[in-house]
């Protein structure tokens, strides 16, 4: 039992992160061309709206929430010290989880039932969506069955994750936790593990640079300001095309 715990909570995280990093870099270098959102809205938009919108907003909020608890555990604990604020925190988290659940359900349903979508659905697409579904269900289960998970995350999980990062794994506190929570952790690392081999890579190319870019893009093939004139026989400037 202990060796299983050791494997899944200490070895596995390292394996999954290593695969995630090496795999993603390798894939982007080898076939970065194929990294796209693979949007299916063109083939099916109506159901898609009720799937992808709640799913994405929900999962992004949950992601941000988990990151905050991971990076600023003390702040989270301080916030949760007041019961009203704790309930707001937990309620909000649960709301987003439900949004993801509903959205994912819709996404899976439409990918399984729509004849056009089946053409653009790989087995991996469905696998990923089921893994995400499992992860969210586990998360909801923790929220309902083992109250105040947000405080647990901050007080126990965050130090555990940091210990992994510092290459000095301290898994005791986590091993002592209920099975559901351990499963949630393992499932999270599984997502990292499969990440490079799935459509999830699209979130790495989220186009935030758009905000800073001028609207119009013009590309020149030769440098207009450094045109070689006939009078200069040889220079490092490029020739004009006439």
């Amino acid at each position: 039992m202990n060796s299983l715990n050791y494997f899944f909570l200490v070895m596995f995280p390292y394996i999954s992160i290593a695969v995630f990093l090496i795999g993603t870099i390798y894939r982007y270098n080898q076939s970065g061309y194929k990294v796209t959102s693979l949007s299916a809205q063109f083939l099916e938009g109506k159901q898609g709206f009720w799937g992808t919108v709640p799913f994405h907003w929900g999962i992004l909020m949950l992601f941000v929430g988990h990151m905050i608890a991971f990076l600023f555990p003390k702040a989270v604990l301080a916030w949760n010290a007041d019961p009203t604020r704790l309930i707001i925190h937990e309620g909000l988290g649960f709301m987003f989880a439900v949004a993801v659940l509903v959205g994912l359900g819709m996404l899976i349903l439409r990918r399984l039932t729509n004849a056009r979508l089946k053409v653009v659905t790989s087995r991996m697409d469905l696998f990923v969506e089921f893994v995400l579904l499992a992860q969210v269900i586990l998360g909801c289960w923790i929220a309902l069955g083992y109250r105040w998970g947000s405080s647990w995350f901050a007080s126990d999980l965050s130090p555990y994750l940091w210990s992994l990062i510092k290459l000095n794994p301290q898994a005791d506190a986590v091993i002592a936790m209920p099975l559901v929570i351990r499963a949630h952790i393992v499932c999270a690392f599984s997502i990292f593990l499969i990440f490079p081999f799935t459509r999830l890579v699209h979130l790495l190319v989220a186009p935030l640079h758009y905000i800073l870019r001028p609207y119009q893009v013009v590309i020149w093939y030769w440098d207009r300001k450094r045109i070689r004139r006939a009078s200069t026989a040889w220079s490092d400037a490029r020739p004009q095309n006439n």
Binding site: T36, L38, S39, Y210, Q216, V218, Y221
Partner: peptide, 29 residues
Amino acid sequence: VASCPSGALYKRGEDGIVLVNQEVCRGWR
């Protein structure tokens, strides 16, 4: 061109032809 979040669309300076760079397009549609 203005709408592309990835910056995949561009106008060629020399002749003004508007193109989508397939390597940069991420399907944000």
